[in-house]
Each structure stands twice: as structure tokens, then as C-alpha cells.
């Protein structure tokens, strides 16, 4: 998808926050708000972005923003949207930014309810693949093999033994008006999707991969590079669901090395060749389906 950097709002709406250096989540929030602009009300549950952005009197959102209950991102968004509309406002955006745990675990019920009702909201899941704010514990979106503090890698168990929950297709299965996947590594694509979502009526879900240098065990300067590599090596994909159809936005053709992607991260360093083979086999099986079914 095409986007023009110069068309982006020059204002900064997420600024002065205390996120770790190189935080992928903060980049996702910053970029999305620059698309949505000043007439935006943002809801963020307990989690990294609320912890780093809302410490009275250091308040880092330039637009209207509120922390919700951990499980309540989507339900509070529903109330905010309905309330602002009842106040007579038109032409505004109600956007939620929840992490992987806040979306796929504790917040999935409220998200499902909001999609079911068709509430006119944008829900963005910034996925850093574990509970990072509490110190790197496994979530439903932690990938197979990853070491977290609750899925330690030892001689018996090599980190997390379950694959990522498929939130993109779970959202799509509600027959949502618009769902998309993205990565902070390819911001043009992410920004275009946020812009597209902002023009669609009803519930919109965007799932953006947002590396966490602290939790992934990568240098703070490598966030964007790693966020590109995950797409290039086929362990993540850029896709959309609209009008009842899946669409693949980018086929890398020949994948970059998944092993290189994995081996450069501290959380995967313990993986055996067999573990990596398992990951690649599962990737190939998924892509076979994607290439056949998502035109």
C-alpha cells in the first residue's frame, strides 16, 4: 500500500513517555495517532503503554486518552464512542491500543462483544509477544519456542510449547468489516491500514507486531530491523480481511532465513535445530494455505 510521509500529521500525540529505548509498541501508538489526528479519543488498558504514558503529572498523550481496566479496552471504547456521539460529536475516532495479553487473553471477551455489536471503533493490538510490562511472562500470543519468565527454557521444556493464538482470523471470523495485520518494521503499510480503518464504519481490528528489545533479547537499535525480518522470513504476514475476503498484501516469495531471525534473539537462543525445523515446518504449512486461499 502507498502512503505519503508528508501527508502525515506533523504533530506528535505520544511524546515524552517512559517506554524503554527502542520500544516497538510506542512506535505503533505514535504512528497510529499521527494518522488519526487530534479528534481522537484513545483507550489503553493497564499495560506497557499506559504505564509509560500516564503518570500524573507526566501525561504523555496530546489527545484525549484514558487508561481502561485490563480486560476492558473494547468495552470502554464502546462507551466512549457512544458517549461522544451522544454529545453531538461527529468526525472523531475512538481507538484502543492493547498489548497481546490485553487482547488475546484477558481482553478477548470484550473485544469479541464489541465486534459482535459492530461498534464504530478501531482496535489496535500491539503485539510484543509476552506480558512485557510485568517482566516478560507468556501470553496467548507468545510464539512457539520463546523463553519467557513463565516458560523457562531448560533441559526438559524448551520455552513456550504452544503456537500463537490466531487473533487476526479470530477477529475475521466475527465477519468484522475490516481486519489487518501489520508490523512496525513496515510503517508505510501499517499507516495505510490505520488510515483505511479510519474511513470504514463499524469495528476495525489491526494486529501490529511490535518488538520489545527487553523481552526479545535484541539490541535497542534493532527493533525495526527485526520487525521487518519477521515478515521477510514468513513467521508473520501482512494481510487484510475486508468484505468477507482475505487478502495477502505481500508475498516475500523466497523467505529470508527464519533461523537467522530466531538465532539473533535472546528468547530463542536455546532452540535446537529440531525446534527450528518444527517452526519452519509449521510456517510452510501456513503459507501453503495462505497462498492457496488468500489472493
Amino acid at each position: 500500500m502507498k502512503m505519503n510521509i508528508n501527508a502525515l500529521d506533523r504533530n506528535e500525540y505520544f511524546y515524552g513517555h517512559k517506554a524503554c529505548a527502542g520500544c516497538g509498541g510506542s512506535l505503533a501508538v505514535r504512528a497510529a495517532l499521527k494518522v488519526l489526528g487530534e479528534r481522537t479519543a484513545a483507550v489503553l488498558p493497564a499495560g506497557c503503554m499506559s504505564a509509560v504514558g500516564f503518570n500524573f503529572p507526566q501525561l504523555c498523550f496530546g489527545n484525549n486518552a484514558i487508561i481502561s481496566m485490563f480486560a476492558g479496552t473494547a468495552s470502554m471504547l464502546t462507551g466512549v464512542e457512544a458517549g461522544l456521539r451522544r454529545k453531538g460529536h461527529r468526525d472523531f475516532h475512538a481507538v484502543g491500543f492493547a498489548g497481546d495479553g490485553g487482547t488475546a487473553d484477558i481482553g478477548i471477551q470484550a473485544l469479541s462483544g464489541a465486534i459482535d455489536r459492530g461498534d464504530d471503533i478501531i482496535y489496535i493490538c500491539y503485539d510484543n509477544e509476552a506480558y512485557m510490562n510485568t517482566g516478560i511472562q507468556k501470553s496467548g500470543l507468545t510464539p512457539y519456542g520463546a523463553r519467557t519468565t513463565t516458560t523457562p527454557a531448560g533441559a526438559n521444556i524448551h520455552g513456550n510449547i504452544r503456537p500463537k493464538k490466531n487473533m487476526f482470523e479470530i477477529a475475521a471470523a466475527h465477519d468484522i468489516p475490516y481486519a489487518a495485520t501489520a508490523t512496525v518494521g513496515y510503517l508505510n503499510d501499517f499507516i495505510s491500514k490505520v488510515e483505511k480503518a479510519s474511513k470504514i464504519k463499524g469495528t476495525k481490528y489491526i494486529h501490529v507486531i511490535a518488538p520489545c528489545p527487553t523481552g526479545w533479547g535484541i539490541p535497542v537499535s534493532d527493533t525495526v530491523e527485526v520487525a521487518r525480518e519477521i515478515v521477510d522470513c514468513g513467521l508473520w504476514y501482512l494481510a487484510e480481511y475486508e468484505n468477507g475476503e482475505y487478502k495477502l498484501d505481500r508475498d516475500p516469495g523466497e523467505f529470508a532465513s527464519a533461523e537467522n531471525y530466531l538465532r539473533r534473539q535472546g528468547r530463542f537462543r536455546h532452540l535446537t535445530d529440531q525446534d527450528i525445523h518444527t517452526i519452519i515446518t509449521s510456517r510452510d504449512r501456513k503459507w501453503e494455505k495462505i497462498r492457496k486461499e488468500w489472493k
Binding site: 517512559k18 503529572p57 507526566q58 496530546g62
Partner: peptide, 23 residues
Amino acid sequence: STFTFDEIPEETCFEAGYLVTVN
């Protein structure tokens, strides 16, 4: 950057984008 008793808001609601420390 510091607030007296009366200046601390009654509700958890304050001016957006209010920064008091640098990074």
C-alpha cells in the same frame, strides 16, 4: 511540576500532554 493539595485534581482528569521531566 509540583502541586499543592488544592491543585491536585479531584478527579483523575488533567490537561493532556503535560510533561514535567525529560528523558
